[in-house]
Design a protein around this nucleic acid. Structure first.
Lengths: 301, 301
DNA sequence: GTTAATCATGAATATCATTCATAACCATGG
DNA sequence: CCATGGTTATGAATGATATTCATGATTAAC
């Protein structure tokens, strides 16, 4: 009936009015500036009258905009209250929850974020199994819930997308300088670290490099453990290719610097898998929700 | 931030609670029952608790559902008020508006629906040009706004989708009986009406018929005017292929009956085109909005 | 039982929002 | 005046999500 009820747009408008800038609003909502611009164009078109007062630098609201803003305040207040109300009625989780995850992800990101959840559910006994082989234990009920980047399209499983695993090429700053790394082909000049001797680990990256810029790896240092590889790279032993989330700290501190940001290796998607029959259990639902509430950048995406 | 703000879903929930039935709710919102079901499943999953009380036939709300319903009442009330407020500030259209449309559509559907708009804007002088050639007059500013089923992908034009033109095959009830029309191939038995002698008019239909059921047209009666064709068909002269909107009346009265509803000829899309610079004018905007507010079934879709 | 109505489900599709890449704009400082 | 850095706008391509289609499952009524 009412075509103004396009609500993601109103949320955008609301935040935009608060921040006073498209760019800031975009950041706040984890969108791009372009998305905000499009959304507002559409909203104004729908409303049939300008809502924003774009006078150069500063951004204001028109008369109509201001009234709409007030309606928004009202609406979002009740909505948030309702959401809060629903949340309140979630009983606290009890019992035991056996979580499985891939080794690298589990040991870094997952562990770094479980504290608040644990604190909120003190009566929940959790234990974690980090391993490559997660599906089998899940199916035979040795695990309740797994976090995996492999696809498991079984009809008995419920899949909840979590985040996308972005890969980066990086090395120590000194290493970059010493080997003058500017384009992918320059990687031929120095050693690269790889999970396997043959260097197949790097295929994900090589596939994203144009044919005429392909490096040729002469010296491959094999290290069958990602964390070990990271330490090696931090010391300047070579360049490495790893999931972004595993080196968030190193990048922030400057121990490692990203190489060739223009090249985008194929991404993997991490999802939560759980048996459908058990997915409704309070404890499983709560953890799923908690993990999904974490913002993308916490996972390095 | 708040993932409960998925509002099309809330609107669905709200109507569902009011109608008390998935099917009825679907009808009200011009969706399928399936869509409603999916939406509610998602909403409950999001809320984390059942909101609907599905006890067999009758449908009730759970405690949480009821509270959410109240929030909805509140929210939609303010929202509707805000929308109303925006609408109120639309000045009434004045001046002159020259509308172009395709012949069949313009003479039937369009004319049948312009009265309310005209009444709401008594000071607006409108005139209508029905023709095949609409783009040229629009570009040279002989028309302000056209309604056409051809694609005009020009960057200076603004396109607003209106409805999809569905084609039906139909004939008089007596004709169907006389020629025992059950499957497409049976069309070979009787005359068919076509806009052109060669029968190319029917390609749209033939392309949707499996190869082994293709009819062969022996007797084609060419009539270069759709309305004339319809009258001929109503009298039992032959089967015809026409846009559904053009025979809404005849179908309702039973003068014509639809044939082979399983076969779906390719659809065309009607859109409004207007010059971007002029699309903002009050009179053009109002008409666009008015036409878009008409529900699909008014156009036979 | 059998039927007719209702709701659920999964896969395919269509629709819409978001991004990417880039243009246009505006203020400020050479 | 023309650069420059910081904005917002725009169009095409993409990706995510809602919707449909086709069908199964459940219930109520006869």
């Amino acid at each position: 009936m009412d075509p103004l009820l396009d609500l993601p747009q109103l949320r955008t408008f609301f935040t935009l009015a608060q921040t006073g800038s498209f760019t800031a609003c975009a950041r706040r909502l984890h969108r791009t500036q372009s998305a905000v611009s499009h959304a507002m164009a559409k909203l104004e078109d729908l409303a049939g009258t300008p809502l924003l007062d774009r006078r150069g630098r500063e951004l204001g609201l028109t008369e109509e905009g201001r009234r709409l803003y007030q309606a928004c305040e009202h609406v979002f207040a009740t909505l948030d209250a309702a959401a809060e109300d629903l949340r309140r009625h979630q009983t606290q989780a009890k019992g035991r929850l056996r979580v499985g995850a891939t080794v690298e992800f589990g040991s870094s990101i997952l562990m770094k974020h479980m504290q608040p959840f644990q604190a909120a559910n003190p009566d929940l006994e959790m234990d974690f199994t980090l391993s490559q082989d997660l599906l089998a234990p899940l199916l035979r009920d040795d695990l309740d819930l797994i976090i995996d980047c492999q696809e498991h399209p079984l009809p008995t499983l419920k899949k909840s997308p979590l985040f996308r695993e972005i890969y980066v090429v990086a090395c120590a700053p000194a290493f970059r300088k010493a080997h003058r790394l500017r384009v992918p082909a320059d990687l031929s000049r120095g050693p690269v670290l790889s999970l396997d001797k043959a260097g197949a680990w790097w295929n994900r990256f090589l596939m994203a490099v144009p044919d005429d810029e392909q490096p040729h790896f002469d010296r491959i240092i094999a290290v069958n453990h990602i964390r070990a590889m990271i330490h090696a790279a931090s010391e300047g032993m070579g360049a490495l290719l790893v999931p972004r989330y595993s080196v968030l700290e190193e990048l922030r501190r400057g121990d490692l610097v990203p190489l060739f940001p223009a090249i985008r290796p194929t991404e993997d998607r991490f999802s939560i898998y759980q048996k459908k029959v058990k997915a409704a259990h309070e404890k499983q639902r709560l953890l799923t929700r908690y993990l999904q509430s974490l913002s993308p950048e916490e996972f390095g995406s």
